[in-house]
């Protein structure tokens, strides 16, 4: 008997993305550029995060026409974003057959209290996190893949580094705790006791964890791999750069060969101008996307 939408099938799909780069695209042409550059998947959306940030207003699920166009254009998996807690956007994306849904803080949350119960869907979900407690809660709801949040649309890697270091430091701590210390840690993190026992047993998160939110150069992508990410999401960093093809290829190669520094030097030559970045302290607290969700 065939079983669909099991944890193994949903989490396994993310395992196949490891060591890869998932790129934000807003149309079929960008999707084809991403695929040709070696992206392992594309994220179809209406505006990249830096444009969302610039334009303001409410950011929603993309026009299904765009998602459909991207799905037709490439043979690699297509992901798409739904607003946090927006059951219907998620169901619509599932009905359209997208391969993965990102319940994303890049879009304006539809629910400030409850995230989606992702276990209830056949399609797998990826969610953002800034620490192990947030990771635990998303996995508890059924997320099959995680990504550290960073600060999307800034081209500034500092928040991505902060969040990945935080998650990994907390994983390392859990691994060193004795069994009788785990419950207190569970309370402190807002994570379930069972989840922490699993993390301790595995010595790592039970799902794939990519880095996101600020990757703008090949060196940024390699840095996230060095810090222990399973792969990277690049949002505005590619199609807001001067030469998207060059940036896309170089970021893919730097992710694979992230400890080959001579190669990264070569890859980084003559790429043209990277996306213009934003210093985090200049962003008003209310405009930080990472604060969305809990």
């Amino acid at each position: 008997m065939s079983k669909y939408g099991t944890d193994r099938v949903k989490r396994g799909m993310a395992e196949m993305q490891k060591g890869g780069v998932i790129m934000d695209v807003v149309n079929a042409e960008q999707a084809r550029i991403a695929e040709a550059a070696g992206a392992t998947a594309v994220m179809a959306l209406e505006r990249v995060p830096s444009d969302i940030r610039r334009d303001g207003g409410v950011a929603r699920m993309a026009d299904p026409r765009i998602t459909e166009e991207v799905m037709k254009a490439v043979s690699i998996p297509v992901m798409a974003k739904a607003r946090i807690g927006h059951i219907v956007e998620a169901r619509v994306l599932e009905a359209m057959g997208v391969d993965y849904i990102d319940e994303s803080e890049v879009l304006t949350p539809a629910d400030e209290e409850f995230h989606l119960l992702k276990d209830a869907y056949t399609v797998p979900f990826v969610c953002g996190c800034r620490n192990l407690g947030e990771a635990a809660r998303r996995i508890g709801e059924g997320a099959s893949m995680l990504r550290t949040k960073g600060e999307p649309g800034t081209g500034n890697i500092v928040e991505a580094v902060r969040h990945l270091r935080q998650v990994n430091a907390e994983v390392r701590k859990v691994v060193t705790l004795s069994d009788d210390e785990l419950m207190t840690e569970a309370r402190n993190l807002g994570a379930s006791y069972e989840f922490l026992k699993e993390v301790k047993r595995l010595g790592r998160l039970p799902v794939v964890n990519f880095a996101a939110g600020g990757v703008a150069t090949p060196a940024d992508a390699a840095l996230m791999m060095e810090l222990g990410a399973d792969g990277v999401f690049v949002g505005s960093g590619i199609f807001k750069s001067e030469h998207p093809e060059r940036f896309a290829r170089a970021i893919v190669e730097a992710t694979t060969h992230y400890q080959d520094y001579k190669l990264i030097a070569e890859l980084s030559k003559d790429l043209g101008i990277a996306m213009k970045g934003i210093e985090i302290s200049t962003i008003a607290a209310g405009e930080r996307m990472q604060e969305r969700g809990w």
Binding site: Y4, G5, T6, V9, M13, M16, G97, D99, Y100
Partner: peptide, 30 residues
């Protein structure tokens, strides 16, 4: 490629494999 469909059609199923005695729980992803 992708001949069983997209991710929604990914599945697991017990397979009979020649040379392997009891069914093997196989995970098919796209």
């Amino acid at each position: 490629r992708n001949s069983f469909g997209r991710q929604a059609e990914s599945f697991e199923a017990p397979l009979s494999i020649k040379g392997i005695e009891t069914p093997f729980e196989a995970v098919f992803i796209r």
